[in-house]
Design a protein around this nucleic acid. Structure first.
Lengths: 326, 326
DNA sequence: TTGAAAGCGCTAACAT
DNA sequence: ATGTTAGCGCTTTCAA
């Protein structure tokens, strides 16, 4: 460690530690001459303030934690990137916690980081209910919910309204003559999953179409079990809605292997949920997530909340849009 | 919650703060009865130790910074995920810094975090030379280089040997009768770029093939400018090696738009550089990066280095392998 | 087996 | 304009 402390600098410059501190932080006026003396000593001793001590004293860590369920999902990777860019401008750093969709990892990390670990949380929670996590998060620490909103959580939130876009996508398929439209969901407990599924069900019902046997439950992280796909194919589905992008791409690959062409043989509705181009999505109709906007807005919200705890809660709803295939 | 300190717990339990501390840290024997008293109080008050204070006192932050050039690149996202899993087991947390391939962001963050900010660095540097960054990193702080190794850096490193795989890929193309083989590089200054290009050049030369006009410089981050592709197509290249995966996928899409089929009309060699399935790669021959292994090894190295500063430097070279298309 | 108390390096209120 | 000093919450030495 650099065992050089503010005391060493003060001694070397022949001033008090208060003066050194004030020079460093620009926190009260110091005579030009004295300031230079101090700056010289700092340079000469190659001193730089111990951030741990400073954090301890001030209670500010200049650190934000972003708790995400899956870093390797391009959706969250993009979110992370955008958030990082926003908060970096405020000299804040980003701690990334990957829960891998496990509640226990989320709880452990929240608890550990809440007390002096970070200044605030961005949280894409794997919980669907605030009650389950309430005890763990101290009341005083700013939290902004991103993408997912556990019921009853008293926090700012930035989420995407998918209902309309999903509904539109179903209507689009129906207009094109599809009646047997399959649906593969994300993880059931996740708050976004329900809304998307509901839109599908409502749209089908509004058009007097059955969903009987057309709904399969997937995950939001990894593999779409090809089993789900096969079951829907066996049901003679002529169109498929896949509730998140990692699964949609996986579906493309599986259909490929089976010699089924998209969109000629079967229509696919997927998600466009990162800023990165994804090969394969050009054959699908897409529900585009405003992921860049969401990341920026969420970062901004947290910064505002950090500066002022007393502003009223804000729930930001960003719209997804439906993009028919080319 | 945050205003509850070890003192409150001690008072509540009717013991000294020393006892509370020792109960928390298991650092000396405490009578079973007393321990339970303390644990009850902790629970009842919902106390959790202030990590900032603890860091300050102990000099340990339990924090690792991973400096990456591009979070949204699946290659680095996967690396991050693996590293996170390894260090989480040691109760270490991961600070992710996204430099976006800019030296200045790398420097700023290194400087800021080195002094008491984190316990160690994982570094996928955008520098090609240690001299440029030497001043910024204090000698005492552990650093492990990941994927890229700036010349002369006195650190442990975990990188991938791509030479052999790239060389094999060129030989493979030549065996299949290709003579006009185009090459699109990554960012020139990055250490991995040179090795890959050299392998290509050596293999071409060894087979008496010209590379004149066949080498185009891309980036490693974002768009392969379609211009590069068009130039190589105009050169009548019948095969293309694209030096990283984001560009390879982009090339696929551009070829698609031009009605050029892969691999029927043109052969493509790309990279498989994440654990995630990438649609489109099934049409290419691939150079597979041992990305999961690299992440785990790098995390492990840093943990070892954290525990013992005196072990000799270790340079780990992982092998990439070449996988011909299906 | 337990307690008292000395700091860690810094910021900031108060004093000069 | 500058100095003195009291802690922030914790770990750990020394004492009982």
């Amino acid at each position: 460690m650099s065992n050089i402390s503010i005391c060493d600098v003060a001694k070397h410059a022949g001033v008090s530690i208060a003066t050194v501190s004030h020079v460093i932080n620009n926190t009260r006026s110091v005579k030009e001459e004295t300031r230079n003396l101090v700056l010289n000593s700092i340079q000469e001793l190659n001193y730089s303030p111990n951030t741990a001590a400073r954090s301890f004293k001030t209670g500010k860590r200049n650190l934000i934690a972003f708790i995400v369920p899956d870093i390797s999902n391009p959706f969250f990777a993009t979110l992370i990137e955008e958030v990082e860019m926003v908060i970096a401008k405020e000299a804040l750093h980003l701690l990334v916690v990957n829960t891998k969709e496990t509640k226990e990892r989320e709880i452990t990390n929240l608890r550990f980081l809440a007390n002096g670990g970070v200044d605030g949380f961005l949280l894409a929670s794997t919980f669907d209910n605030y009650a389950e996590m309430e005890d763990v998060i101290p009341k005083h620490i700013p939290v902004v919910l991103v993408d997912r909103r556990p019921a009853g959580a008293p926090y700012d939130s930035v989420i995407v309204a998918n209902y309309q876009a999903v509904y539109s996508s179903v209507e689009y398929l129906i207009r094109k003559g599809h009646t047997r439209i399959g649906y593969i969901t994300g993880l059931p407990r996740i708050t976004t999953t329900a809304e998307r599924l509901e839109a599908y069900q409502d749209a089908m019902e509004a058009n007097n179409l059955s969903t009987e046997g057309f709904i399969r439950t997937g995950t939001s992280m990894s593999a779409l079990v090809s089993e789900n796909l096969d079951i829907l194919l066996a049901q003679d589905c002529s169109a498929l809605i896949v509730s998140n992008n990692m699964m949609a791409i996986q579906a493309m690959m599986l259909l490929d292997q089976r010699g089924i062409r998209v969109p000629q043989d079967i229509e696919l509705i997927g998600y466009m949920d990162s800023a990165q181009p994804q090969y394969g999505t050009q054959y699908m109709s897409l529900i585009r997530q405003p992921v860049v906007d969401m990341g920026r807005t969420a970062g901004q919200r947290l910064i505002e909340r950090l500066k002022n705890q007393d502003i009223p809660l804000r729930e930001t709803l960003l719209r997804a849009d439906f993009i028919p295939v080319h």
